[in-house]
Design a protein around this nucleic acid. Sequence first.
DNA 1: GAATCCCTTGTGGTTTATCACAAGGGATAG
DNA 2: CTATCCCTTGTGATAAACCACAAGGGATTC
Lengths: 222, 222
Amino acid sequence: MFAKILIAEDEDSDNLGIVSAVSDYTKATVDTAQFCDKTLLKIREALQKNTPYDLLISDLSFALDYKKNKITTGKELIEKVKTIQPDIKIIVFTGEKKPAIIKSFFTNHKIDGYVCKGLYGLTQLVQAITAVDQDNIYTCPISKDALHQKNVLQLDQYEIKILKLLVQGYKHEEISQYLVENDIEPNSKRSVEDRIRKLRDDFNAKNNVQLTYIVNQLGLID
Amino acid sequence: MFAKILIAEDEDSDNLGIVSAVSDYTKATVDTAQFCDKTLLKIREALQKNTPYDLLISDLSFALDYKKNKITTGKELIEKVKTIQPDIKIIVFTGEKKPAIIKSFFTNHKIDGYVCKGLYGLTQLVQAITAVDQDNIYTCPISKDALHQKNVLQLDQYEIKILKLLVQGYKHEEISQYLVENDIEPNSKRSVEDRIRKLRDDFNAKNNVQLTYIVNQLGLID
DNA sequence: GAATCCCTTGTGGTTTATCACAAGGGATAG
DNA sequence: CTATCCCTTGTGATAAACCACAAGGGATTC
């Protein structure tokens, strides 16, 4: 079983509950960090002292940093952590329930578990720790659903760019111009329209208003 | 100081922290409820036994009810509570930071305090309890900002209806039809357009795509 | 090299959104 | 009562979104 666990969670109301649940269950050394940068620092230090953490339990959203922390989202934090200690296990423990976001953490960031905070969050977190300790992947009911949804379409960078420009009020023509100026191809007005139409098809949207609303609700253009 | 406090919070990871902070500070009887309906029930029972709660600390979002609880949002909960015990003090303790939503809780629901969960959530919650106990209104830094923002435009039901139809892909003409069928006035296509144009002006949006994106981001059409 | 496929782009036409101008009607102040 | 204001609605024009068809070009296959 894990011997050294780090919990990255900025909400003070949450900390106590998580720490006590985790340390009751695992008997491991449990440290906490309330900022992304602090988390990274602790992981680095532990590595240098040859007493690395086995497991990181991390939230995704962190308070905006009045102290100018460099990293402010769990996404970036996890990316950085993976570069300095690739073998560390990671469980995300968060309120975020959007399927697209959950999915991307498994596919893009190779996390080991995902637990949504909620009624039974702590129970599931304990289950996750057990599973991950045995080299399994853990998904709570909500994230399991998210991963099994077939029609959680992932957007590529090109599509995200177009949609972001759209919600900024850009016209098709202006989007085309922007793409030309930034050397992104394809970039004709016609191609932009084509891609937007494809997206409308994919998401069953009647027009661009509904399309942008849908992808925004799904968290695809955050 | 308050003698009897009820905490409505569905996240189990949060409960422990909140309860211990509140009971350490107040020396009051502190009860908790993980569902909206359960909360309402406890308040009713306490009233009948002539030992009512002095203070309700409530979250806003609650887990969706597999047991078919009637109330699933803090908003509805607070409305109901106010009808059965109008004099109870209410502090909202939640992750929700959208100005429009925060504002509406003070103007429409006459709550006594609003604290955003976060780095110093518990500290602020304790401050809120002190303030509210002395019949003052408490706003945490974030909600204070929200209340002071001048340009947090509130939408009326008519405007919300139109915007909701818009993001469902309705055309102006179809919105007009819908309004006619539901006896909502004004309902001509022209009037619908006019109102949408006014909204675009208010929110500085170039077109309907940007408009709906903005109001959605602000949480005005939830 | 020719046939084929796929992606990109262009053209032109229809529908919808956006906008300017104005007529009608109810409410209100004097 | 009348002048005025504001809200609603209508008309018609322009801009943008939306859509169907097809040409050109690169890559692949045989």
